[in-house]
Design a protein around this nucleic acid. Structure first.
Lengths: 163, 163
DNA sequence: ACAAGATAGCTGCCCAGGCAGACATTGTTG
DNA sequence: CAACAATGTCTGCCTGGGCAGCTATCTTGT
């Protein structure tokens, strides 16, 4: 029920959530990509693969929403995964606009093989956090995400193009 | 002291910190940019401006570190701010490699004028969070950032080029 | 004092991803 | 059923920012 957590005269960048998130993102993503440098797929591609495997997504549009990309970027991402034989496109019969994606056996194998790399990284990072702290962080971030989403929905009613 | 928070067989993307951070970043940054769409500077430029004003940074390299960009991107960012007369470059006398940056009166005015937009956004987002929760989130994220930094430093001893 | 290594800044090149537009299909409303 | 809006996919085009390479300067070890 905080009316105003941040006030103009006491505001400091270092305590700004946007700053912390941006910083974390700019630190983590390139490092995750580096962990995959010797691999045939990139970290970003792996994320898409795992989301398909876990049933969080099943179409191009799903992946775009899941990853916060636009649909154009996603098409090209899926192209690459298809070229490498990690997934297949099938035009849906129920809704012919839709192209359903499904992992091939090799896609499944790749997704599984690379998971430990990421988990190891995170487990190393979290060594000094108690299990409770991590859970709290995850819970707060999840709620924050929801709050950001609804705030953006409230303000930015922009006619979407490809998103 | 958590040895392994994430385990291969119980891992779910939705509870992955990387996923949450990426998602938040991809949601917040474009929206922040949109808040500045009618403005003469971008959100990213504003962040640099504020960091200079608050003494968190004073050179190009500082800004690169602060924002997690590389030095090339920062040069161009500073170019634009200089072109608009919001800051000035001065070759340092103590260390002649360094170019010191300082805000002009106009730069100061712009930084100040735009601050309320961002704070309002965040205060709206945080309406349903208690003050204590926000503080906890900030504290955990700050610690996470430190942990990520030292983990990356431990692993990735790569000869830096421009970073 | 000098070679080797860091560090600051700049530039050219490249690419992932955003934007906008096209098209097909489906849903909705009169 | 006609008109219109919404959704899914794909394609050009463009830009921000990463990378590598260069110079100039400072620092450190011998």
């Amino acid at each position: 029920m905080t009316r105003k957590y941040y006030k103009v005269d006491t505001f400091q960048s270092r305590r700004a959530l946007g700053y912390l998130i941006r910083r974390a993102h700019n630190l983590i993503v390139p490092h995750a990509e580096a962990l995959f440098a010797d691999q045939e797929i990139t970290f970003t591609q792996w994320v898409a693969l795992v989301s398909l495997r876990d049933g969080l997504t099943s179409t191009c549009a799903d992946i775009a929403r899941h990853m916060g990309h636009d649909s154009g970027a996603t098409t090209r991402l899926v192209d690459q995964l298809e070229d490498r034989g990690l997934l297949t496109r099938t035009r849906s019969k129920a809704d012919r606009r839709v192209v359903n994606l499904s992992l091939t056996a090799e896609g499944r194998a790749v997704a599984k093989a690379l998971t430990p790399r990421i988990l190891e990284f995170w487990n190393n990072v979290l060594t000094d956090f108690s299990s409770h702290e991590v859970t709290t962080l995850i819970e707060l971030l999840t709620r924050l995400l929801g709050a950001v989403e609804s705030e953006i929905a409230k303000t930015g009613q922009r006619a979407g193009s490809g998103k």
